[in-house]
Each structure stands twice: as C-alpha cells, then as structure tokens.
Write a protein that binds this DNA or RNA. Structure first.
Length: 477
RNA sequence: GGGAGUGUAGCUCAGUCGGUAGAGCAACGGCCUUUUAAGCCGUAGGUCUUGGGUUCGAGUCCCAACACUCUCACCA
C-alpha cells in the first residue's frame, strides 16, 4: 500500500469515527449539474439545488471550501462553509479530491459570478482511496489511460465527451433504420463455421457438446438466412472478432453494423450509406467538416462515386484490363506477383496507390468479381461485382454489394475459395447453400465499421480512443 | 513477428560532459469566509521499469528482458 493510500485510509478512519458511513447508498433528489446552471435565475434567493458528483477541484480557504463537482452532465461549484454546515463542517474538512459527494442548499452566485450551491447539507457517497491524477494535465500516460479507463473518463472530460458522442451516433443510426422499417436482430457470436469474411477467427470450445466453435468474423451468412426466412429488412449492430494484428485502425474485437434490404441492390445501399452517415454528421458534427489528423474531411453531398478501374488508372497509372501492365506496376511497388491471380495483383496495386488518396468520402464501385465471393456479378460485365466500398480518411469504412442469391454460383464460389486457401480455417457452409436453394430474395447488403465511423466523426486518429477498453497485454503483476 | 522510440516522486515533466535526484500539482503541518489550476509559510516524498555489464563512480554508456507508443508485416 502506498503512502498516499495509507493517508487516505487514515482519513477514512476519521470519517468513520464521526459516525459517518463513507460508502453511501441511494441519494435522492440530485439534479444534473448543467441542468442546475441552466435553470438558474439571477437575483432570486429562493432557489434550492441538490447535486451529486465527484470532487475534481478543491480550494480550502479556511472556514470556506470551494469544491468543483463533476457529474454525468458537466461541473458545478459547491461552497461549503463552517457557518452553514454546522456539525457537518468536520466532514467537509476531511473531504479530498476524488471523493464522491452530494451537496444541497441555496443556489446563488459568488462575487466573481460563478453559479454555486451554498451547501447546508453535504453527504459523503463514496470515499476515494487512491490519489487522483494531476488536476491540470489530467492523465496523460497512454498505457494507464487504456488500462484504467475508469480514471481516464473523469480525469479527461474530452474522453467522456467522445464516448457520449459514440453512443449518440449509434442511437441515431438505430432510430433512422427503425423509422425505415428495419428490424434489429441478434445472430450467433459463436459459430461452428466462421464465414462471411476472409479472416482468421478466434477458436473456443464448448464442453458439453465437446465441439470447437469460432467467434464470428462476420454475421453476414446468418443475416442473409433471415432474408430467406422473410425478414426483408434487418440489421445487427454487434461485435466481430478477427485474430489479426493490432493497429491504429484495427482492434481484434470491433463493432460492425450490417444491414440487409430485400429487393434492393448496391446502388440503393450506397444511397442508404450516404444518408446514414450524413445524418450522423448533421446531428453530431458541427459544420459539415471534421478535423481528422492532418486532414479536414468535407462531408458535403453528393460524395464521389468512382469505378475501381478508373481509380487504378488515376493513381496507379495502369489499365486494369492490361494485366501485364498491372503486374509490371506491382513489381515496381515491390510486390512478388508471380503466384497471384490477376485480380489479387490489381488489388495489391490498388491498396498501395489508390487508398492513400481517398480522403474525402469516396465510393469505390465495381470491384473485380474474383475478390467478392458473396457478391452478385454485374449483368453487363461478369468480370465485375456489384459492390462498393466507402473510403474516408484513407480508411475503409463500409463495404456493400448486391447479394449473390444463386445457390449454384455461390457453391462454386465457395469451392474456389476453399481451393485457394488450403491452410485457411474456412469450411464449406452447406447449410447456407441449402438456404439459398429455398430462395433468397434479391437484396442489397451493407456493412459499416462503427468504430472507424466514430473515429472519423469525432476526429480520433486511433481506434483505441473510440473503444472503451481496447485490447492490451495484461499488466505486469 | 521486424524496425524506431519511450519508461525518473501518486500525477505532469526536467535532469548538461558519467560525479551520487529536481520543479509544478497532489500529500502532510500552519494561516485564511467568495476561490476559479486559489494564495502564503513550512515538511516529507525516489530500488531512476527489471536484470546483468563497463567504470573509482551509471538516471546518463553497453547488453538482455518486460511494458507501452509509432511504423512495417498480417488484415475482403
């Protein structure tokens, strides 16, 4: 136990000696700090107020103590005086930074004009036994901020603000989809076959069935089974798990929204994407622009829609139909393309040359069909898939296509996939083929990476700043 | 997994050429009834991430380990 903790334990003992319970229970009548400030009317001495929160600043000037309380809404000052508190003054003198208290009394202003509760009653609700971070700089150590988010949240108000915005954005999305008749559903997180994406899954084990299960890498194949079942408009907001490296843009568990709409296609999903994201920008980002690292993202509609092949020509300088030119470009970029399919080579060049240029919201459309085993091919050009990805700030934010609903074609695509990836854990999902044989309505499907969307909309350049508890190695004991 | 960087008081950070550890905040004692990162006087606080090595002497130089950050690889 540190010296500081011992000192605080000592105060705890003195509080108990006063007959005060240092860990209170239900506290009645507290109002949000910002609401109290909002309703304050100057020169009206009949106003009472009651507020509960954590002590984040404390100024003891003898027989008067000023305390800044922080609650869910913001901060409010309380003035604790010997004269008004009477017997409770002994407790007031023992309060320290980090303690959670309730304070009630007359609402007024100080000489300098700050709205203040002049407390005639103070209640200790929870004693803080560990020293809080420095009051001005807050908590800066990144490791500690992520490991002890519970401290980060109250020591750094902008952190709390960002997570509130995250919640509000997700709510906006939910409400908008509900208003359009979409049903929110939940599909398995633990799957016997990890399908719907090409990624390494996490493996776990069910004891009584004695079977290995995979944490899902995507809900896609289950959501499309629901289309077969007649749920024509569904969406799911939930975690996906991919056993891959960590980076500023990747956390092993991340939140996706997947949306499926029967009788739609990828063009309708493109409109829906633009509509959803724009609504979030409008409601949660002042102006139509967001600062993101060195960039300023302009969300003014309409967003650019550019063909994959056009972008490859524009930034990569090669024609996607001239496979030798594409291979030459790949070699220039240091890619060993000798064992790769044409489409994979093109995608290497695309990732190396195009993506870094996609700052403003850009829909990339018409991907090579070979890269898209779950997408329908374009009628006028079977080499292309009816698919788009949305890029913002160099990041892939959304992925969508007109869903493939031809069971024979899907079966063939699965077989091709299995041949190509021998060491992959992918298995043939024959039940999904069976579902398609019953008939899936034509549909558009869309996935949006929620964490990345929140990053872009709140200007967070690392995914760890939008995930409350990002994955870290366990701390040393 | 590769490369680069960081690790000093509870927190935020200094620490020169290798010469024996510093500030602010927080804490502790005192003064103070209108403060705003309150102020003033005083006190205490350190296995310099860990383990080796070089040296008369290491926070500082070398090696290794651990953690974090950035980056690359992986990543529909």
């Amino acid at each position: 136990m540190s010296k500081f903790e011992r000192q605080r334990q000592e105060k705890l003992s003195r509080i108990k000696e006063l007959g005060i319970e240092p860990y209170g229970s239900r506290y009645e009548g507290a109002e949000a700090a910002e609401d109290i400030k909002q309703r304050f009317i100057d020169d009206d001495e009949t106003q009472q107020a009651n507020c509960a929160g954590r002590i984040v600043l404390l100024r003891d000037i003898g027989k008067l103590i000023f305390i800044t309380l922080r609650d869910r809404s913001g901060t409010l000052q309380a003035g604790l005086s010997k004269k008004l508190l009477g017997k409770q003054w002994e407790l007031a003198k023992l309060l320290e930074l980090g303690d959670t208290i309730g304070a009630s009394g007359q609402l007024g202003k100080t000489r300098t004009g700050e709205i203040t509760i002049w407390a005639d009653s103070v209640t200790l609700l929870s004693k803080c036994l560990l020293p809080p971070p420095e009051k001005f700089h807050g908590l800066a150590d990144l490791d500690q901020r992520y490991r002890q988010r519970y401290v980060d949240l109250w020591a750094n108000p902008e952190v709390m603000e960002r997570f509130k915005t995250r919640s509000a954005i997700v709510k906006t999305i939910r409400e908008h989809l509900a208003s359009k008749g979409f049903l929110e559903v939940e599909t398995p997180m633990m799957q016997a076959i990890a399908g719907g994406a090409a990624a390494k899954p996490f493996v776990t084990h069910h004891n009584s069935l004695d079977m290995d299960l995979y944490l899902r890498i995507s809900p896609e194949l289950f959501l499309k089974r629901l289309l077969v079942g007649g749920l024509e408009r569904v969406f799911e907001i939930n975690r996906n798990f991919r056993n891959e490296g960590l980076s500023r843009r990747h956390n092993p568990e991340f939140t996706m929204i997947e949306i499926y709409q029967a009788y739609a296609d990828y063009n309708i999903m493109m409109d829906l994407t633009e509509e959803l994201v724009s609504l979030c920008v409008q409601k949660h980002c002042p102006g139509n622009k967001v600062e993101f690292g060195e960039f300023e993202i302009d969300f003014t509609r309409p967003w650019r829609r550019a063909k994959y092949g056009e972008l490859l020509k524009e930034h990569g300088g090669c024609d996607i139909d001239d496979t030798e030119a594409v291979r030459e470009k790949a070699r220039q970029l240091g890619v060993d393309e000798s064992q790769m399919d044409d489409a994979v080579v093109a995608n290497e060049v695309f990732e190396a040359t195009v993506e870094e240029n996609l700052i403003a919201p850009t829909f990339v459309i018409d991907y090579p069909a070979a890269l898209c085993p779950l997408a329908r091919r374009k009628k006028d050009n079977p080499q292309l898939a009816a698919r788009f990805e949305l890029f913002i700030a160099r990041m892939e934010l959304a992925n969508a296509y007109t869903e493939l609903n031809d069971p024979a074609q899907q079966h063939e695509n699965f077989l091709t996939q299995l041949r190509g990836e021998e060491e992959s854990l992918t298995k043939m999902d024959s039940d999904y083929i069976t579902a398609l044989k019953y008939g899936m309505p034509p549909a558009g499907g869309l996935g949006i990476g929620i964490d990345r969307l929140i990053m872009v909309l709140t200007g967070a350049v690392t995914i760890r700043d939008v995930v409350l508890f990002p994955l870290l190695r366990p701390a040393r004991s």
